[in-house]
């Protein structure tokens, strides 16, 4: 069952074309990653899907509800953790979470039970009557996630949920994301953390300059970089290595290959012939970051 649908979304801000026709679908129970460089159109897409902005053209549906015509119904089925957002600093954690529960029209008893459960789960129950002003960044983010989940939504939009957090808070949030997906709920995750996206997401969309570059599983994306093995080699001198699929990073090269033995022999031959000292050579599988950068490079 499709729960998030975007169909040819276009949005301009003055002369800036933020979205140039974004289309994708997300199935129920999926963790869907949305990646792209800064200014690619991620936040604009999320704001349209969460009914904050209206698209100039195209359609978007959340749980079958049109985001422009059935705004309130669409909003009722989602929970949102916006990227740039705060809880009210002069309200307590409890007042903040109960405010959101009221705005979702929850009954008081139901809201209190759910709020207690979430605040305990995220380790902030003991501070529930403290003003948010005194919370650490990790605690604030855990509270924000509790606020996003208070209505037990079918679809959760998380925009950079672990950005700048301590290890403990980040891990707690990642575990919760997996738990949510296990409950057959849908997570729309925007992140710059490639390891996180690789670890959590079933499928990933890469967006650039307001367009979708590709949508695939993390494993398939990684295999698209030109090989299934990445060889990292560093030289003592500055050299020019002319091998297929070789990319330079300072005095280090990364070569993507399907035949690591042959490639290593070529690299060693090159070092011998050019009289260059080889400092180190490692093999690893390509990462999602490699795939991301490669795909964006191909777009240029």
């Amino acid at each position: 069952m499709i729960v998030i649908e975007a169909e040819g979304l276009k949005k301009n801000f003055g002369n800036v074309k933020a979205l140039r026709g974004i289309s994708f679908e997300v199935k129920r129970g999926e963790i869907f990653g949305f990646l792209g460089p800064n200014g690619a159109g991620k936040t604009t897409t999320v704001r349209i899907l969460t009914c904050i902005l209206k698209p100039d053209s195209g359609k978007a549906r959340i749980n079958g509800y049109d985001v422009v015509r059935d705004t309130l119904k669409a909003k009722q089925s989602i929970g949102v953790l916006p990227e740039v957002s705060n809880a009210y600093p002069d309200l307590t954690a409890w007042q903040n979470i109960m405010l959101i529960a009221s705005l979702y029209g929850m009954r008081r008893s139901e809201a209190e039970a759910r709020a207690n459960e979430l605040l305990k789960e995220f380790g902030i129950h003991e501070r529930k009557d403290a003003k948010v002003r005194g919370f650490s960044k990790g605690m604030k983010q855990r509270l924000m996630l509790s606020m996003a989940l208070i209505s037990d939504p079918e679809i959760i939009f998380l925009d950079e949920p672990t950005s700048g957090l301590d290890v403990q808070s980040a891990r707690m949030i990642r575990e919760k994301i997996l738990e949510i997906a296990n409950e057959r709920k849908t997570v729309f995750l925007t992140s710059h953390n490639m390891d996180e996206v690789n670890l959590l997401c079933d499928r990933v969309a890469i967006v650039n300059k307001g367009k979708i570059v590709t949508i695939d599983t993390p494993e398939r994306l990684k295999s698209r970089v030109g090989g299934n093995v990445a060889i990292e080699v560093s030289f003592g001198d500055k050299v020019v290595l002319n091998l297929e699929n070789a990319e330079r990073f300072g005095n280090k090269y990364v070569i993507y290959t399907t035949n690591p033995y042959k490639t290593i022999c070529e690299v060693v031959d090159f070092a011998r012939k050019s009289g260059t000292k080889m400092i180190s050579i490692n093999t690893r599988t390509p990462t999602l970051e490699d795939a991301f950068l490669k795909l964006l490079e191909m777009e240029r």
Partner: peptide, 14 residues
């Protein structure tokens, strides 16, 4: 300024 507005606007309210 406090960046609380976006959180409010994502709630099912007009």
């Amino acid at each position: 300024q406090m960046r609380t507005l976006e959180r409010l606007l994502t709630c099912p309210i007009s």
